[in-house]
Simulated scan of single mutants.
Amino acid sequence: MSNINAMIGWMSDQLGKVTYSMTNRLGPDSYDCSSAVYNALIAGGFLRAGSMGNTETLFNDLERNGWQQVKPVNGNYPAKKGDIFIWGTRGQTLGAAGHTGIFVDDNDNIIHCNFGFDGITVNDHDYIWGYNGQPDITIYRFTGNVGGEPDPKPSTPKPIDPVPQDPDKRITMSGTFYPDRQLAVSADTNPDDTASPALDYYNAGMAIPYDSYIMANGYAWVSYVDYGGTRRYVAVGPDDGRIDTTWGRGFFN
């Protein structure tokens, strides 16, 4: 059963006990903003155990699981206890470009894992929001079984994380990757396919907007459709289950 108090309770239990890290974000000693919120959602029964994403995937994961956007009233968001906020423009919140946390009361106080205080703290939302330049904000509130909560006795487990959308098993997720080295553009995900040589290259620091990713043949690949309407792939790091070994920033890190 979903429980707002249990969700907030997980965050509260970590106060003063953990540090902030985008590299070692999966606990138990450090988290980043989104991994803390994901763990809180799991503790509250809103997501299945084992679910983990980032600020960008949080939009879809909330919407699929009974959370709806809170609409502003006269330019203000009437936030309540248990609401989840996401700062940043949807589609561009990966890495340090986004932030998320949970409202702990009806008076605009939030609990969040943050770099500024190096851990999980409770702060006045509007003060922190203003200090960070008043970024775009989306607020979600749990309204019920809109997207369908997991059946307690499903015959086949229903995944909560992004699911394959296409025949080649790509997973839908938008973002922008910035390589720290030269990366090749490929027509497929086979790095040893001599019949499919590099089509082009991205140099260090160049932006690679992508609409999906796939883990294949030992690598993590981002994918996009080029101006000619053809799908392309760029390997951005090894498929090693880590977020600190990619060849740049903008993909789960």
Rank of each mutant, 00 (worst) to 15 (best):
Q14P: 05
A204H: 03
P238H: 05
V104M: 14
I8E: 12
Y20E: 05
T89S: 12
W87H: 12
D108G: 02
F115L: 11
A43M: 05
I8V: 15
R170F: 03
I86D: 03
G95S: 07
V122E: 15
M173K: 10
A184D: 14
F59Y: 15
T176C: 08
V225G: 01
V18N: 01
N5F: 05
V234D: 08
F117N: 11
D124A: 10
G228T: 11
T172P: 00
T19V: 07
R141E: 14
R231Y: 09
P157A: 09
Y178I: 14
D200Q: 11
Y131G: 03
E149S: 06
G119N: 08
V104E: 14
G133M: 07
T156H: 01
G133H: 08
N74R: 09
F59H: 15
T19M: 01
D83F: 12
T93K: 06
G9W: 03
Q14F: 01
S155T: 04
S174E: 09
G66N: 10
Y20W: 12
D106P: 14
N107G: 06
G229F: 10
G144F: 09
T156D: 02
V37R: 04
T189L: 00
R242N: 14
P209F: 01
S34G: 08
P179C: 06
R90S: 11
L15Y: 13
G101H: 10
D211I: 12
V234A: 02
G116V: 07
T246I: 05
M173I: 07
P159Y: 00
I42L: 00
R141W: 13
V222P: 06
P135R: 04
S174W: 06
I128N: 09
R141G: 15
N114M: 10
W247I: 04
G116R: 09
A204L: 05
T172K: 09
P162I: 07
A6G: 01
G119Q: 09
T55Y: 01
Y201G: 07
C33G: 09
G205L: 05
D29W: 01
V122P: 00
I86S: 03
G53I: 03
I243Y: 03
L62E: 09
Q14V: 02
D211P: 05
I102N: 02
N60V: 12
N109A: 06
V222I: 15
P209W: 00
W10E: 12
G75Q: 06
S155D: 08
T143F: 01
G144R: 12
E149Q: 12
V234R: 02
D13I: 02
P150M: 01
A204F: 04
N24L: 03
Q68L: 13
D180H: 04
D239I: 10
T143P: 01
S12A: 15
T100W: 03
G175P: 10
F115V: 11
D118M: 08
S51W: 00
G241C: 02
A36Q: 12
I137F: 00
V234Q: 02
Y127P: 00
T89P: 00
N145R: 05
L183R: 04
R181D: 07
Y127Q: 13
T121R: 08
T89K: 15
P150C: 00
L183T: 06
D136P: 14
R64Q: 10
M173P: 00
P238R: 09
F103M: 09
G9T: 07
R48I: 05
L183E: 05
L199P: 12
D126Y: 14
I102V: 15
I8P: 10
